[in-house]
Write a protein that binds this DNA or RNA. Structure first.
Lengths: 256, 256
DNA sequence: CGGGCATTTGATCTAATTCAAAGCGAGTGG
DNA sequence: CCACTCGCTTTGAATTAGATCAAATGCCCG
C-alpha cells in the first residue's frame, strides 16, 4: 500500500493520515492508522497481533521539551504519532549541531543502542506524541516475527543512508544548494505522508535550519530571499510555497 | 576482554592482532583471532559454534578495486580481515564524497539493507581480505543467538553515532580542527586494535582526506604543514607521528 | 500595548577556495 | 643503474563564499 492522499492543509504537518475521526487514538499497532509509515510496515494481521505487545504506552511532549537527553539511559525507541522533533548533538566545548529533523511516523532513539545511553537530545519543536517501544521487547518479538526484524534493520539502515546524504550536503554543496535540498527533502517526506508537495509550514527557526545545514542563520535568510527574488518559492514567515520545483531541484542536484 | 597490546610496527596497519602465526587463517568465527573486534564480540563458545554457519567465505580485494559499487544488489555484509577501505557516495552531478574509512575488524555494507542495493562504493586502499556474511542467514542465526542480534544492532547504531560525529565535524569545525579530529580518531581506532597511539601510516591521499573532511586537498596539506611547524606532529609523506597529543586534542575539542 | 525573539538586510572581514607552479618519490623501462 | 614519467604533495598569490558585526524591522504573546 502506497499512500497518495493529498490535501490542502499541507502546512499542518501534525495531522495524522486519513483522520476522518482524529480523536479516536489507536491503542495498538494493529489498529493504528500510521502503521504503514512506521515500524510494522507491511506486516500480516497475525504478525501485527504479536507486535501489539511491543507498544508499552504513549508519551506526550510539549513544545520545547526533550523526549530524551544526551547521556540518558537508553531503553526505548520512540515512534512519532504526531509532532515534529529535532535531534541535536553537543560538542565538548559547548558547540551544538542539529543532526536531524523527525516527523510523524519516524523513529527516534536509534543512537542509544550502541552504548546503552543516548548521544543526542531529542527536542519537540511542537507539541507531540510518541509511541514508547521498549527495545528489549522489540528484540524478543523480532525473533519470532521475521518481518519485524527486517523492518528494524531497514530503519537503522535508512538512517545510515540518510546521514550519508547529509555528509554529502555538508561536504560538497554551497549554501543555496543545501537549502534547496533541505526544502525538497522536507516536502518529499511530507508528500509521502499524504500532504502537499508544494507547501510547508516550517517548525524550526532559521538558526536551527542553519545548524543542520552547517551555515549561519543569516546565510539561510539570504538564501531564502534569493529564492524568492528568483521566483523559486514564496516565503511568508515560516510558510513556504514552491513556485518552480524544477529549478529548485536543479539547484539541489548534488543530493544523491 | 579488552585489547591493550601495543607494538612498534604501528605504521603497518594491516597486521592482524596477535599474529604469532600470521599465515594460519581461521576458517570460522570461533577460531578467528579477530572475533573480539568483529561481529561476534563477547559470545560464548556455544554461541560461536552456531555463528560459524554465518561465514560463507572470504574475498580478497586488490588495492584500487571495489568490494561493491553503488547500485549493486545487496546480499552480504563484509567484515574486514585486513586492509583498509574507503566508502564514497556519488551525487547526480558527478560530485563524489568520501563518507568513511574502514579498517580491520569493521563492517562494510550496512547501507545496502534498506533498499536491497548499495548506495555507496567500497574501495580498497590497499590489498585487503574480507569475510563474506550473507545477511539473510545472519537474520536467521540472530533469531537463535541472542547476543548476535544484540551485536548487529550495536554495529548499526555505532555507525549512526559515528556519522553524528562527522556531521558535527562538517557543520561546526574549522579546517585544522577537522584534521586534528581525523588524525586522533584514526589513532584511537588503531590503538583499540593493539597498534601504537602515536604513529600512523596513512593509506589515503590528501585529496581523499579532504573529501572526507569537506575541505580541499590544498587545505589539508597546509594544515599538515602548520601542525608540523607548531610541533604537534611530524609528517614524512604519509607517515604521521604524534609529538604533542594534548595540544592536538585541544585543537580537535569540538568532537563529541 | 510593550517586550522579547526571530528575521531581514547591509557592510566589512576572513578562512578557505581556486588557480598556478614547482618539488618530490616511487616505479618503469631503456 | 639511471633517467624519466606520472601522480601526489607543497607552497604562493589572488579571489570569493560565507561569517561576523551591526542595525532595523516585524511579529507573536502575555
Amino acid at each position: 500500500m502506497r499512500l497518495t492522499l493529498v490535501n490542502n492543509w499541507a502546512f499542518v504537518t501534525t495531522l495524522p493520515l486519513m483522520t476522518s475521526t482524529p480523536h479516536i487514538h489507536a491503542s495498538s499497532c494493529s489498529t493504528c492508522n500510521l502503521r504503514e509509515l512506521c515500524l510494522p510496515v507491511g506486516l500480516t494481521p497475525e504478525e501485527l497481533n504479536k507486535v501489539d505487545e511491543l507498544l508499552s504506552g504513549r508519551r506526550r511532549i510539549k513544545r520545547g521539551d526533550a523526549l530524551f537527553h544526551s547521556g540518558d539511559a537508553f531503553n526505548n525507541l520512540y515512534a512519532i504519532r504526531f509532532g515534529f522533533f529535532k535531534t541535536t548533538t553537543a560538542a565538548l566545548d559547548g558547540r551544538e549541531q542539529v543532526t536531524g529533523f523527525q516527523m510523524i511516523g519516524e523513529i527516534l532513539g536509534l543512537d542509544g543502542i550502541v552504548h546503552n545511553h543516548h548521544t543526542c537530545d531529542a527536542i519537540a519543536l511542537e507539541d507531540a506524541e510518541v509511541c514508547v517501544l521498549p527495545f528489549e521487547r522489540m528484540g524478543e518479538i523480532s525473533r519470532e516475527v521475521n518481518s519485524l526484524q527486517t523492518n528494524v534493520h531497514r530503519i537503522m539502515s535508512r538512517e545510515i543512508v540518510r546521514t550519508q546524504g547529509v555528509m554529502m550536503m555538508l561536504g560538497n554543496m554551497r549554501a543555496e544548494e543545501r537549502l534547496a535540498a533541505f526544502i525538497l527533502n522536507l516536502l518529499q517526506r511530507l508528500h509521502d505522508r499524504g500532504f502537499s508537495a508544494r507547501e510547508v509550514q516550517l517548525r524550526m527557526t532559521r538558526e536551527e535550519i542553519g545548524s543542520y545545514l552547517g551555515i549561519q542563520l543569516e546565510t539561510v535568510s539570504r538564501a531564502f530571499s534569493r529564492f524568492v527574488a528568483d521566483g523559486l518559492i514564496s516565503v511568508k514567515q515560516r510558510h513556504i510555497t514552491i513556485l518552480d520545483e524544477d529549478r529548485l531541484r536543479a539547484l539541489a542536484q548534488a543530493t544523491a
